[in-house]
């Protein structure tokens, strides 16, 4: 149950942790866009270098970051194999052929690029979630979506629902562990029998979990009421987010990387060294 890593925040103090969450969120979105502009291996190398620098700056142990890749390892392998096996493009660069299995060089290159792209897509946001608490993230989201409140979208309410939900995930996981232990102590078995039996075996866990979630929700509502919570209107913040100089540097740094990526892809100025970095268009 401990693998539920939505709240995978890694507590430490670093310049990346201190960045304004709004800036981090916007940059994370821009980063994802950037990945799709990368076409060459040297571009991917640049992407990985960027991530490496971020991880080093954030003081999160690199193994912790790689852990997020472990979960999608299967997806990466699966897409790689499928792309290689079902590529039906070129005909002249056949590397290996046996009956209906044909492996082309172009397919291998495309599949590798796709795998690299998925890795980058996962690594970037996990740096974000490792260095930003879920509460900071929802706050940032609320602030960024503020214009939508003008057209009567309940932005604040959505944000508070999200932060409460995120806050309760670890609590519920802990609760689930406790209930599972208690039922196991009464000789409940969760890992035997067919699928229907197993689903039924979960009832003694799910029912108490539901009951306690309702109880918690009730108590929380009372607690919020008793502290005069009235929704967004007239509410001030304890932590006011202010942009600092480091946020400017972060934006500028990211823009530089984005620009480098675009340059590698489009070579607007016709630099001679760029084709050299991407031999054969790879």
């Amino acid at each position: 149950m401990r693998d539920v890593s939505i709240g995978q925040y890694y507590q430490t103090d670093s310049v990346i942790h201190r960045l304004d969450p709004r800036v981090k969120l916007v940059l994370a979105v821009a980063y994802i866009v950037m990945i799709f502009f990368i076409v060459s291996f040297i571009g991917y190398a640049l992407g990985f270098l960027f991530i490496l620098i971020l991880v080093l700056l954030s003081r999160v142990p690199p193994l912790q970051v790689l852990r997020s890749l472990r979960m999608i390892l299967f997806l990466i392998i699966f897409t790689f194999v499928l792309t290689v096996l079902f590529y039906r493009g070129g005909g002249d660069d056949l590397l290996f052929g046996w009956q209906f299995i044909k492996i082309y060089k172009t397919a291998l290159i495309n599949a590798s690029k796709m795998a690299l792209r998925i890795m980058l897509l996962v690594l970037g946001p996990s740096v974000l979630t490792l260095t930003t608490t879920p509460v900071e993230l929802t706050d940032a989201l609320e602030r960024l979506l503020w214009p939508l409140a003008k057209i009567k979208l309940p932005v604040h309410e959505l944000a508070i629902i999200m932060s409460i939900a995120l806050r309760l995930i670890p609590t519920l996981v802990e609760e689930t562990d406790k209930i599972i232990s208690a039922q196991k102590a009464r000789c409940a078995e969760f890992d035997s029998g067919n699928i229907f039996k197993r689903a039924k075996a979960l009832l003694p866990v799910l029912i108490p979990l539901f009951v306690s979630s309702f109880r918690r929700a009730d108590e929380l509502a009372f607690a919020m009421d008793s502290r005069c919570y009235r929704g967004a209107v007239g509410r001030t913040r304890m932590k006011v987010m202010r942009l600092a100089l480091r946020d400017l540097f972060a934006v500028l740094g990211f823009c530089a990387v984005f620009f480098a990526v675009l340059l590698l892809t489009y070579n607007w100025f016709g630099f001679g060294f760029i084709p050299l970095l991407t031999p054969g268009g790879y």
């Binding site: 609760e175 406790k178 209930i179 232990s181 208690a182 039922q183 196991k184 102590a185 009464r186 000789c187 009832l203 003694p204 866990v205 029912i207 108490p208 009951v211 306690s212």
Partner: peptide, 22 residues
């Protein structure tokens, strides 16, 4: 033999009433 063991040692957790379900 978990069944034998767990029927030998009865374990009552904190707030055991939260495990009622049936």
């Amino acid at each position: 033999d978990f069944k034998l063991l767990r029927s030998t040692v009865g374990m009552v957790f904190q707030y055991p009433e939260y495990q009622l379900f049936d």
